[in-house]
Write a protein that binds this DNA or RNA. Structure first.
Lengths: 134, 134
DNA sequence: CTTGACTCCGTACCATGGTACGGAACTTAT
DNA sequence: ATAAGTTCCGTACCATGGTACGGAGTCAAG
C-alpha cells in the first residue's frame, strides 16, 4: 500500500507544470524562501494546493512589477497577523505602482506621437528623440 | 591658447553629471554602442549636445520599459532613413507598452482591493493571495 | 529486476544593467 | 613645476532572476 498522501499530492515536476514554470524555478524559489520546502515522504517531496497558490501568486505579482524580495515580504505578511504592516506595505506598493503606471502612460504618449509623426509620405529620419521631448 | 572645441565642449564627467548618470555608466553605454565614442582631442574625449540628448533619451526610454538593446535599435532608427522600419518598431513597442500598462492596471486593482479589505478593525491575516484572485 | 523517468542537491553558468578598481596619462589650479 | 583632480582603459565584481549540469537516489512499468 502506498502511504496516504493527504493533501500532499504533487511532485515538484507536476507543481512546476501546473504553475507554468520550470522545475529549476521552483527549486530556485525554495532557495529564496518564496516557497516552503516540504518534508520528504519516501525520499520525494510532495506539494499541496497551497504551494500552487503561492506559485501562481508569485507569477502575478511579478507581472505587477514586484521583485522577488518584495513578493517574499508580501507572502510573509499574508501568513502573519500584522494587519497594519500588511496594509502599509500594500499601500506603499500601490503608490509605487501608480507612479510607474504614470510613467508608462507618458511614454505611451511619446510613442504615439512618434508613430503619427513618422508617416510614410515624408522623407528623412523619424524624429524619435524629438518625440520624447528631446 | 586652448584649441577651439567647437560644439565639443563636455568632458565625460560633465556629460555624465548633466545626464544624471555616473561616468562609468557613460563608458558602459559606449561599450554597448548606445553612445558614440568621440575622437580624442589632446588626449581627452569631448562630447557635444548630441551626446547629452542621447543620454537623456536613454534614461527616458528606460523608464518607459525599454531594454538597452531596444533603445539601441531606436537610436539607430532615429539616425537612419528607413521610416517604415522606425514606425514599425515604434508601433510594436507601443503595443507592448499598452499590454504592460493593462497588466499593471489589473495589478493595481488587486492591490486596491487588498488595501480596502485589509482594514484595521478586523482580525487575522490580510487576504493577500485572495486579493489577487487566488 | 531492469529500464527509463523523475527527483534531489550542489554548483556553475547565463543575460541584463550597471559599479568598482587601479595604474598611467593628462589637465588645471596654485 | 608640482599637486590635486580627471580621464582613459581593461578587468573584475555586483544583484536580479533564473537555467543548466552531473551524479546519485527513487519510483513505476513491463
Amino acid at each position: 500500500m502506498v502511504r496516504s498522501q493527504g493533501p500532499q499530492e504533487l511532485t515538484i515536476g507536476k507543481l512546476a507544470a501546473a504553475g507554468g514554470v520550470g522545475v529549476e524555478t521552483v527549486r530556485f524559489y525554495q532557495r529564496k524562501a518564496l516557497l516552503a520546502t516540504p518534508k520528504r515522504l519516501d525520499g520525494v517531496r510532495r506539494y499541496g494546493p497551497e504551494a500552487l497558490r503561492r506559485l501562481r501568486f508569485i507569477k502575478r505579482a511579478q507581472t505587477a512589477g514586484f521583485t522577488l524580495e518584495e513578493i517574499r515580504e508580501l507572502l510573509a505578511l499574508d501568513a502573519g497577523e500584522n494587519r497594519s504592516a500588511a496594509r502599509d506595505l500594500a499601500r506603499k506598493r500601490l503608490d509605487q505602482l501608480e507612479a510607474r503606471i504614470g510613467e508608462l502612460n507618458r511614454a505611451r504618449e511619446a510613442l504615439r506621437k512618434l508613430v503619427s509623426e513618422c508617416a510614410e509620405d515624408k522623407t528623412g529620419p523619424c524624429p524619435i528623440l524629438a518625440s520624447f521631448g528631446l
